[in-house]
Amino acid sequence: MSQLLLDVNGLTMRFGGLVAVNAVNLAVRNRQIVSVIGPNGAGKTTVFNCLSGFYPPSDGSVMFKGEQIAGLKDFRISRKGLVRTFQHVRLFSNMTVIENMLVAQHRHLNTNIAAGLFKTATYRRLEQEAMDRAAFWLEQVDMLSFANREAGNLSYGQQRRLEIARCMVTQPELLLLDEPAAGLNPNETKQLDELIVRLRDEHEISVLLIEHDMSLVMGISDHIYVIAQGTPLADGTPDEIKQNPDVIKAYLGEE
């Protein structure tokens, strides 16, 4: 058994009287793909918002690399190596693809003003390294030839891939993907499937995935959590989930 990377216990999020997330437990180990599934409005995105610091959880603990991160500011959590994408693509659409990749590396660059004004050697070296890292990840998602295009002009599938590359260039250890296959055609979904598996096997990171595409989820997940109406319903390997009567009734049955 590998070490626990993310360990969530009793995570609860209330909006006034509405309990959007109710005592959810999650565990992600190193080099694992873990999926969260559940019907629309189940509270999956809210879980992501709590983990990534966009909402302070009402209750519960979030341990990341053995450290409590519940209630930390979003950008601090991201700097610790837990980075997310969004259900609706959020790119800097007036910037080029490469610039999107550079913004993501902001804190790896030399932001000393004097160094930048006079283009010192360290400044140029760090910028070149950032460029190289950006090019590497663009290559990984098959987007290198679009590097100088404006992000807003890309196709939807390309925007999705750029968003993942932009997360990866920050060098995270855990990547949170919120419905990355939504709106993709079967071909693009297959590419995405391969990419996520490659992230785990070659780049040795863990992925926490929210997805509605069942064949994708069942195909790549090491472990699956099912939540319905904010409450944990079941968890297990894909095979266990497929046979779980509660899940079939509450979720798979309705499709």
Binding site: F86, N94, H106
Partner: peptide, 17 residues
């Protein structure tokens, strides 16, 4: 670049640290 990025999408910026 960060100024422009922040003007375009603050939430994305925060998620990137």
């Amino acid at each position: 670049r960060a100024w422009e990025a922040l003007r375009e999408d603050e939430i994305a910026c925060r998620s990137l640290g």
